[in-house]
């Protein structure tokens, strides 16, 4: 029993250290954000006169309302389309057992680890020729494609485990394939689709490379891409940069804290399947 207790204590201490190491950067960011704009504060020195106004300044400077709107629009473009399209494909490959499904599946799986840098150059010229360069579509459409391997993989994993009898009985009742999909399987897939939605939201929101390459105007980018531009414009002012970074982090953090259970589970499952 003694060993068990000692182990528990080491565990607790370790957890605390780990949490401190995780949080310390955020604390440093926060403290720095309170220093007078334009100064070069030391790492963790509490300012004599905390400048709470920096957050307001950064809010205006970063044009947060417009940024939020832009990111939300992009997420609204990527997530619903991806969900519908991937659920349909997952259903067909995993449940309908269409001919050639193994080939289709492998084709998608091969895209799972594709680095975005591998295709970002042609995507630029592709977007330009389609006339969507510097619009949000230039981020939305390629992202749907790039997330498709994982989304299909994820939904297939769900549909493979759905019992055949379910569909059999629906068919006996005269349901068409579409009705079978829409009325029976989509509602049952809710847990899988909602987890996928969380993952897609996060990945879209945080997408950086496509945002900086395909869209010049920070106000048409994702949050992450806008943060890059914010660094470009205000990187010369450390406290303001820190305040702005914290503001840009806040929406993700809020969503994460609200849905944290689902988030953690989804991400863990997500990586396991991926």
């Amino acid at each position: 029993m003694k060993t068990a207790r000692r182990e528990a204590w080491t565990g607790r201490v370790l957890l605390l250290v780990l949490m401190a190491a995780t949080l310390m950067p955020f604390v440093s960011l926060f403290v720095t954000a309170l220093h007078p704009s334009g100064s070069y504060p030391l790492g963790l020195d509490w300012p004599d006169d905390p400048q709470w106004g920096n957050f307001a300044t950064a809010f205006t400077a970063a044009r947060m309302t417009e940024l939020l709107k832009s990111s939300v629009l992009i997420v609204l473009g990527v997530v619903p389309i991806s969900l519908v399209v991937a659920t349909m494909a997952g259903f067909a490959i995993g449940h309908l057992r269409i001919p050639g499904r193994r080939f289709v599946f492998v084709a998608f799986v091969l895209g799972l680890t594709l680095p975005f840098e591998g295709i970002v150059t042609p995507l630029y010229y592709l977007a330009r020729d389609m006339g969507i360069l510097n619009t949000r579509w230039a981020i939305i459409l390629p992202l749907i494609g790039l997330f498709m391997p994982f989304s299909v993989f994820w939904m297939r994993a769900h549909f493979v485990n759905m019992p055949e009898e379910l569909s059999e009985s629906a068919r006996i009742d005269g349901a068409s394939t579409w009705q079978l999909f829409w009325k029976v399987h989509v509602p049952l897939a809710a847990p899988a689709t909602s987890s996928l939605a969380i993952l897609l939201f996060l990945w879209t929101w945080n997408q950086f490379l496509l945002a900086i390459v395909l869209v010049d105007d920070p106000l048409q980018r994702t949050m992450s891409g806008a943060l890059g531009a914010f660094q470009g414009q205000w990187g010369t002012d450390i406290p303001l940069l820190c305040a702005g970074s914290l503001l840009i982090l806040t929406p993700t953090l809020l969503v994460f804290l609200i849905f944290q259970r689902r988030f953690v589970t989804a991400l863990l499952q997500g990586s396991l399947k991926g």
Binding site: D216, D217, P218, A229, G232, Q233, G235
Partner: peptide, 8 residues
């Protein structure tokens, strides 16, 4: 107006 650092 859009602004960036010179290197960018």
């Amino acid at each position: 107006i859009r602004e960036d650092q010179f290197a960018v």
